[in-house]
Amino acid sequence: MSSSAARPILEVRKLTKRFGTVEVLKGIDMVVAEREMVFLIGPSGSGKSTLLRCCNRLEEPTSGHVIVDGVDLMAPGTDINAMRRRIGMVFQQFNLYPHLTALGNVSLALRKVLKQSRAQADATARAALEQVGLAARAGAYPADLSGGQQQRVAIARALALEPTVMLFDEPTSALDPELVGSVLSAMRDMRAAGMTMVVVSHELRFAREAADRVVFLDHGQIVEEGPPSQVLGTPTSERARAFIADLLH
């Protein structure tokens, strides 16, 4: 699906992130093209989640640039809130608003950020819930939904804003194994619909099947990247080899 000629949607340039004296990201360069699905993998502490969280400045990069659809998020004049609504994010812990229904969760930003009327926002939110197969649970509160359903509501919350790119931070890590499938299938549908996606995940089988590219990070650097068959099948670096062997067995 990807080609080098495709329009870049997300560009990360010379990105560094330091927590105190610890350098978590050591100059990352990465380009994600339109409609591309990129998996970020690596051992814990490799910096993959930090890299993802820098892509919408939930984490403040120490230096470097993050350019989304041509707009530099680090530029002083950039309206970060306007950009963030175009960068969907899905969290490991779902982070649904517990005091709002599924519909309320999805429609909140539609009303507050896109300034839609309540009726308009509800209609958009319902359509988004429909996309993740949860139209029937629109009135349910997060506490009454399974983990898989909660995560799909969280996906709908991001999708409803019609993002240019979606970031997934270990979307299935907090789920019981039998609930993982429903979330992966929602992600598969998004990919089929042409969404640009960056995914931090340990679901290597899903990566092999669905990803256009796999990026292996270790110690804050990109060690290896390429199509999943190459990076997951015949990794060249020793570190990637050890990591992948560990996860697959």
């Binding site: 809130n81 950009m83 963030r84 909140l108 930003a109 919350r157």
Partner: peptide, 12 residues
């Protein structure tokens, strides 16, 4: 996480 979720959707 509630702050992050809200801010990630563009809420101020």
């Amino acid at each position: 996480g509630q702050w992050e979720a809200a801010r990630s959707t563009g809420l101020g």
